Computed example of a mutant assay.
Amino acid sequence: MATASAPLGVGIIGAGNISDQYLTQLTSFPDVRVLAIGDLIEDRARDQAAKYGIARAGGIDTVLNDPDIEIVVNLTIPAVHVEVSEAIIAAGKHVWTEKPIGVNREESLGLLEKADAAGLRVGVAPDTVLGPGVQTAKRSIARGDIGRPLFAQTQFQWQGPELFHPNPAFLYAHGGGPLLDMGPYYVSTLVHVFGPVATVAALGLRGSETRRVQVGPLAGEEFPIEIPSTVSVLMQFEQGGQAQSLYSTDSPLLRHGVVEITGTEGTLVIPDPNTFGGAVTIIRPLTEAVTPPAPVVHKTVDVPQEGVLVGRGLGLLDMGRAIRAGRPHVATGRFGYHVLDTLLSIEDSVESGTFVPVQSTVDAVGSLPDGFDPLAVTL
Rank of each mutant, 00 (worst) to 15 (best):
Q239D: 13
P217F: 06
T210V: 04
P217A: 15
S229G: 03
V213A: 03
P224R: 04
I227N: 09
G240D: 11
V231R: 03
S232A: 12
G207C: 03
P217Q: 15
E226F: 08
G241Q: 07
P228I: 00
Q239K: 12
E226G: 04
E226T: 00
S208V: 00
G207R: 04
Q214H: 05
L218K: 14
Q214Y: 02
F223T: 07
G241W: 06
E238C: 11
I227R: 14
P217N: 13
F237T: 05
G240Y: 09
S232Y: 12
I227Y: 14
E209L: 14
A219Y: 10
V213C: 03
E226Q: 15
V215C: 06
S208H: 12
S232P: 01
M235Q: 00
T210L: 02
T230V: 04
R212N: 15
V215A: 05
R212L: 06
G241S: 09
S229Q: 05
Q242F: 09
E209C: 00
Q244K: 08
T230M: 11
G220Q: 12
R212P: 03
V233W: 06
Q242R: 09
S232D: 08
V215Q: 09
V231F: 04
T230I: 01
F223R: 06
Q239N: 13
E209H: 13
I227W: 10
M235W: 01
A219C: 11
R211I: 02
M235D: 01
G220P: 07
V233Q: 01
Q236V: 15
E222Q: 15
G216W: 07
V213Y: 00
G240V: 13
V231E: 01
S208A: 15
G240N: 10
S208I: 00
Q242C: 03
V215H: 05
M235S: 02
L234S: 13
E221F: 06
P228S: 03
A219K: 12
Q242L: 08
P224K: 04
Q214K: 10
G220D: 09
I227H: 13
E238M: 14
L218V: 07
S229P: 02
E226K: 14
V231L: 00
I227Q: 13
A243C: 08
Q242K: 05
T230P: 02
F223A: 09
V233A: 05
